Amino acid sequence: GATAVSEWTEYKTADGKTYYYNNRTLESTWEKPQELK
């Protein structure tokens, strides 16, 4: 079936920290989303 993983994109900030952005909800988070675990 369809999965929600594709909504999240992993980015890195200029200082090398990783964060996650959800293209559907426009939410961003420092925590790894449940969908990616």
Rank of each mutant, 00 (worst) to 15 (best):
G1D: 13
G1A: 14
G1F: 12
G1I: 14
G1W: 13
G1N: 13
G1S: 13
G1M: 13
G1E: 12
A2M: 13
A2Y: 12
A2P: 11
A2K: 05
A2D: 12
T3E: 13
T3H: 12
T3K: 03
T3A: 12
T3L: 12
T3S: 12
A4N: 12
A4I: 13
A4D: 11
A4G: 11
A4V: 14
A4F: 10
A4R: 02
V5H: 12
V5W: 13
V5D: 14
V5G: 12
S6K: 09
S6R: 08
S6L: 08
E7M: 05
E7Q: 05
E7L: 05
E7A: 07
E7H: 07
E7D: 12
W8A: 00
W8D: 00
W8N: 00
W8Y: 02
W8P: 00
W8M: 01
T9P: 00
T9Y: 10
T9Q: 12
T9D: 05
T9H: 11
T9I: 12
T9G: 06
T9S: 12
E10H: 03
E10L: 05
E10D: 03
E10P: 06
E10Y: 04
E10A: 09
E10N: 02
E10T: 09
K12H: 10
K12I: 13
K12E: 07
K12G: 03
T13P: 01
T13M: 06
T13Y: 03
T13L: 05
T13S: 06
T13F: 04
T13Q: 04
T13K: 03
T13R: 04
T13D: 13
T13E: 03
A14Y: 04
A14G: 08
A14I: 11
A14K: 10
A14N: 09
D15A: 07
D15R: 03
D15Q: 07
D15V: 03
G16H: 02
G16L: 02
G16S: 03
G16D: 04
G16P: 00
K17I: 09
K17D: 07
K17M: 09
K17Q: 09
K17E: 09
T18H: 05
T18Q: 04
T18S: 10
T18A: 07
T18K: 07
Y20R: 00
Y20P: 01
Y20S: 00
Y20K: 01
Y20V: 00
Y21M: 07
Y21P: 01
Y21W: 11
Y21L: 11
Y21Q: 08
Y21F: 14
Y21S: 04
N22K: 00
N22M: 00
N22V: 00
N22A: 00
N22Q: 00
N22T: 00
N22R: 00
N22G: 00
N23S: 09
N23R: 07
N23W: 13
N23L: 08
N23K: 08
N23T: 09
R24E: 13
R24H: 15
R24T: 15
R24N: 15
T25R: 01
T25W: 02
T25V: 01
T25H: 01
T25N: 02
T25G: 01
L26R: 09
L26H: 15
L26I: 02
L26G: 15
L26Q: 15
L26V: 02
E27S: 05
E27Y: 04
E27K: 06
E27I: 07
E27N: 04
E27D: 04
E27V: 08
E27L: 06
E27W: 03
S28V: 15
S28I: 15
S28N: 06
S28P: 03
S28L: 15
S28Y: 15
S28R: 10
T29L: 07
T29F: 08
T29E: 03
T29G: 03
T29A: 06
T29Q: 11
E31H: 08
E31M: 08
E31D: 11
E31L: 09
E31T: 10
E31S: 06
K32V: 09
K32H: 04
K32F: 05
K32D: 04
K32W: 04
K32Q: 08
K32R: 10
P33L: 03
P33W: 03
P33D: 01
P33M: 02
P33G: 02
P33A: 01
P33N: 02
P33K: 01
Q34K: 09
Q34T: 11
Q34P: 14
Q34V: 11
E35T: 06
E35W: 06
E35R: 03
E35I: 05
L36M: 09
L36T: 05
L36G: 05
L36W: 09
L36S: 06
L36Q: 06
K37R: 10
K37C: 06
K37M: 15
K37T: 13
K37G: 15
K37E: 14
K37H: 13
